[in-house]
Design a protein around this nucleic acid. Structure first.
Lengths: 281, 281
DNA sequence: CGTCGTTGTGGTACAGCGTACTACAACATT
DNA sequence: AATGTTGTAGTACGCTGTACCACAACGACG
């Protein structure tokens, strides 16, 4: 049962089905999403269960199933709620594609940091209305770049991907302590790292520790802290984004029209590796 | 019970505890990880349960708990197994930092595509031995760039983040059909998109459809397919990476030493947004 | 060789999960 | 007032991770 789409009943995709309660309703999808987001923010993503959300709403568990077909749809609702925060408010999008894209990127990052669980479980993340709005806004931002469609779509996706990747790695690997520039790595992780290094199998990492900026006078724990601190500097986000956009901009300046597939101007081409990636030909 | 690290018992981090079975053993962590990875590959990530893995090993469920403290540790094992595939084999790392980093990136992408579940559930992804090796290899790749430590670490992380973000978005949003250049989006998603567009609230997306490369003679479904096809072109990965590295390279050429925080040469600075991101600073 | 301690194995049991099924209450319409 | 529709939920089932416990297999030692 519960056929995907053919059966003649209502469609499976939540955005295509009207909200129940058009006539009488105690709750709404927006309210449910908001409550679920709050639970995820405060108690972690794993705390979001149908029972827990229902309880927070003051409703019976099964009542949720009249607003949502299953838990995946609740997650979709939650995700789209976050995408709503990603949108730059009307009229606040800067002029010039670079500034506009940067503004969108910074806002996205801030949203994902506010709701780190967004990146935790990331599959079943079908785009909803706010996702479409984000796409629209990115297109608007890219308008002044004067690029052909394909390149415009490429750059816009690139920024999304950069933001995603950066924020994801960041929320996983480095948890900045709240008080100042201190970083929280479990003592055991540090010990593991230290022990691994002591095997001597990592010459380049060990060389790092002899650098004047890292050395820390033989205190390896302190050295690790400094490395982690460098990698998790918040400015890295804007710096990397600027570099990415520099590269995009440089490519714009060179050939007039006609974009030309990948690796066009890679100075040394990694031929074998490229073949690997193009698996299906 | 099961205190994090202080209690005086064995340490909590799996990499610090010796494998059981130093004297007698029926299985090994490597075998368990491999079996679990196979299950995830073939039956999806959700199929990986303690019972299922034990069954595949021909062991009792609880036996697993002598190799692993809990399911999170099993996931850690699986993740590190994938990180093993990310490593470029000894001696195959190309010369020159650009080619070397590109090679690592392509290999990473291939690994993540082989095991898409890696990106599915991405929290509880503590770095293991192969993660450290990957770090070592990235440092090796960056050696010839002649950058100061911090910038070297920055670029190396940047590539990781790009690969992560790109591959993640790709495996989520666009599922390339196996036969040729066809793309699989649920019909309902297309319908939702269409209906959303019909509201007229998306002028820039609608303008896309009037482009000569997208238009498709009024067939909006076909238009969407063409847009999705453009965004999910596999060459985009190398193209974007090349652009990112172009930006990095351009920055290397300009000032001699002394990197200088973020947004150094952004032509138009998004001041308000930058303040948002630097929340605690 | 028998005994003991250690270590690997795994059955049982429990709390919690998503959700199918079902009954029922509340209201709009006739 | 009767009927149909729609929103609300209780109960129950199969699944999950895993705490607890019993036990088997082996190395070392008397």
């Amino acid at each position: 049962m519960s056929n995907g789409r053919g059966g003649g009943g209502q469609p499976g995709l939540i955005w295509l089905r009207e909200e129940p309660g058009a006539r009488r309703a105690a709750h709404s999808r927006a309210e449910i999403a908001s409550v679920a987001v709050a639970i995820a923010d405060e108690e972690g993503f794993d705390a979001v269960s149908m029972r827990r959300v229902a309880q927070a709403l003051g409703a019976g568990t099964m009542t949720l199933y009249h607003y949502v077909r299953n838990k995946d749809e609740l997650l979709t609702l939650m995700h789209d709620a976050v995408m709503g925060e990603v949108l730059v408010p009307e009229g606040e999008l800067p002029e010039g594609w670079r500034a506009a894209m940067t503004s969108i990127a910074l806002r996205s990052r801030a949203s994902f940091q506010r709701h780190p669980w967004t990146l935790d479980r990331v599959s079943d993340t079908a785009a909803g209305p706010n996702g479409v709005r984000h796409f629209e806004q990115s297109l608007e931002a890219m308008e002044s770049a004067g690029l052909p469609v394909e390149e415009r779509l490429h750059v816009l996706s690139l920024v999304d991907e950069y933001v995603f990747g950066f924020t994801l790695r960041e929320t996983i690997d480095f948890v900045p302590e709240e008080d100042g520039a201190d970083f929280l790595w479990p003592a055991e992780t540090l010990e593991f790292f230290q022990r691994e290094l002591d095997t001597g199998a990592y010459p380049h990492i060990n060389a790092l520790f002899e650098d004047e900026e890292i050395g820390a006078g033989g205190d390896a724990n302190e050295g690790v802290r400094r490395i982690v601190a460098m990698i998790s500097r918040p400015e890295r986000f804007e710096h990397g984004l600027a570099q990415l956009l520099d590269g995009v901009e440089a490519g714009m300046a060179r050939p007039p029209g006609k974009r030309n597939g990948a690796g066009r101007r890679a100075p040394r081409k990694p031929a074998a590796a490229a073949a690997t990636a193009r698996a299906s030909g």
